[in-house]
Design a protein around this nucleic acid. Structure first.
Length: 200
DNA sequence: ACGGAGATCTTCT
DNA sequence: GAAGATCTCCGTT
């Protein structure tokens, strides 16, 4: 079952938690390339100082104010595309960043897109997974609640709370005491080998 | 295992 | 003009 817009209309933290275990699918030339989501982060509201939505509406963050269930894709560090799903009602800036997936289908495609790297390196990071799955700015604003766009999220393996951990978000000023650091808005599958910043 | 730096360019101050 | 929701390579330990 493809996740509907009503699902994404919920609070971004709820969506981030519930997306763990869902499957991200990209149809490439009739072939399913997919993976199970094992790590997410929530960004919500103009009071979230870590979010692109903090400074009001800008050309880049416009998708965050739009329809829930759309893709928000942007370039970071001049070379990496990051995939978010827009959440909460229209006019509320919120999104969930997909940070890591476990490869499931189209492994041959991923191997080509991530040549020279180990399987664990294919998709264990927000920019790694977009590269592996062939997702870039072409899909910004794409509707992820229908197969017609070629990219969507579907129900796969819902996780129990016992299998889920949460903590501070990654990659923002790492100083303890900053307001965004105190918010544990990153969720991950505790036992997955494909979580970013994985430590043995 | 860990840390530092370079890559590369858009966005906002 | 500086920083950025990152990744990889190369150095040292």
């Amino acid at each position: 079952m493809i996740l509907p817009a009503s699902f994404y209309a919920q609070n971004a933290c709820v969506v981030a938690r519930e997306l763990l275990g869902a499957r991200l699918v990209h149809m490439i030339n009739g072939q399913r390339v997919s993976g199970r989501i094992v790590e997410t982060e929530a960004y919500s509201g103009i009071t979230d100082l870590a979010s692109h939505g903090r400074a009001g509406r800008t050309p880049r963050n416009l998708p965050m104010w739009g329809e829930p269930g759309r893709a928000y894709i942007y370039l970071t560090y001049g070379m990496h595309w990051l995939l978010n799903v827009v959440c909460e009602p229209v006019e509320t800036p919120a999104a969930v960043l997909i940070r890591a997936i476990e490869p499931l289908e189209g492994l041959d495609v991923m191997a080509v897109n991530r040549v020279g790297l180990t399987r664990r390196q294919w998709t264990s990071g927000p920019a790694r997974l977009t590269t592996a799955m062939g997702i870039d700015q072409r899909f910004n604003l794409a509707d992820m609640t229908t197969e017609s766009t070629g990219i969507w999220l579907e129900v796969d393996t819902p996780l129990m709370d016992a299998d889920v951990l949460s903590g501070p978000r990654v990659g923002l000023g790492k100083r303890v005491g900053e307001p965004w650091y105190s918010m544990p808005w990153r969720w991950w599958h505790a036992s997955s080998l494909y979580v970013s910043r994985w430590k043995p």
